[in-house]
Write a protein that binds this DNA or RNA. Structure first.
Lengths: 177, 177
DNA sequence: TATTGTTATACTCTATAACTATA
DNA sequence: TATAGTTATAGAGTATAACAATA
């Protein structure tokens, strides 16, 4: 997985014959994604592990206690990386490792009170980052864009699922549609 | 710069109160971007340096002979990385390093005939990848999505330019608009 | 014997610093 | 003295493999 794939618009404009709108999906995607990623990373800079640490915290909080290995599979991070990540999050007082009463080998990851409070704040900051990225669109366009992007994303995710457990959960939580 | 920042939709759905459309811009952006990046990387797998190598080839071809350092600044890669990249591209017969008649320290990067032919093929493959990613949208929606994404991207790029030379080039090459 | 989690090690990618040849 | 490019080296991030405890 690499960064931008298409060169800047003016380059594509010559190579491929297409109109300016058609010529540079890769460029536009890359720019927008990286801008959001940068904003989000800034919003999450004081979380140990950055965006990854936030994901662990958010998932542990939303889905209840999870084993390390489940969490790792769900978020598609190596189990050894998960160890380091949890070491740091635990040191910062955001999560705790608790013995799983059902299996003494396993550890359940639960957010602390401080972790839950931190999470609320982080989610607010992330929404700000989202709004900033979409700042160029008025409310109507913004909604259309989000809906279309969502459709593209859902299809992309179903064709090329990032992690299976996630999609199972999707179906479980979205029974109506 | 990290990968996805938002967890999967069902996680955000609980944490943030928002509707399903509003809840996960980061997730959707990440999924779509990574899917495109993956497809593009597959299309460019036999190019030395992958997407990066393609960018070098495309830029050298579209904008005429460029010095290594210009190219590096333009594409935002370290000059030492550019050295390795060009070593590989040259070994593969796609570009040549020619002495700059105006400065014997500098090298001009020019694509070979084989490089230009390869580039044509790669651009065709990239357009296929784009179409595949947008496969879920009909022609009308696809156009709307591209236009809105383009607007977001142009604004994002102007606020947080990836590399200055690029924007200068933008203005130079797009005098009418 | 297989699995959870940890640790130690190796690998990849990128950036830093030192070097050459020119200017 | 400063710049273009190269090379060697060190650093972050990630993955592999060996290990301890438990199933």
């Amino acid at each position: 997985m690499d960064s931008v794939t298409s060169p800047s618009p003016e380059v594509r404009a010559r190579g491929a014959a297409g109109t300016s709108v058609e010529a540079d999906l890769g460029w536009a995607l890359g720019v927008v994604f990286r801008r959001y990623a940068k904003r989000a990373a800034a919003a999450l800079e004081d979380v140990p592990g950055g965006p990854r640490g936030y994901q662990v915290l958010a998932t542990a909080n939303a889905e209840g206690p999870r084993r390390q290995l489940e969490l790792a599979g769900h978020l598609d991070v190596d189990r050894t990386v998960m160890t380091y990540l949890l070491d740091d999050l635990e040191k910062a007082g955001l999560v705790q490792r608790q013995p799983d009463p059902a299996d003494r080998r396993a550890r359940l990851i639960v957010p602390t009170e401080q972790g839950r409070e931190t999470l609320c704040d982080l989610e607010r900051r992330l929404r700000e980052a989202e709004d900033e990225v979409l700042g160029g669109l008025d409310d109507g366009d913004r909604l259309v864009f989000r809906m279309l992007l969502q459709r593209v994303a859902i299809r992309a995710n179903s064709q090329d699922p990032v992690h299976n457990a996630c999609n199972v959960a999707d179906e479980t939580l979205l029974p109506g549609d």
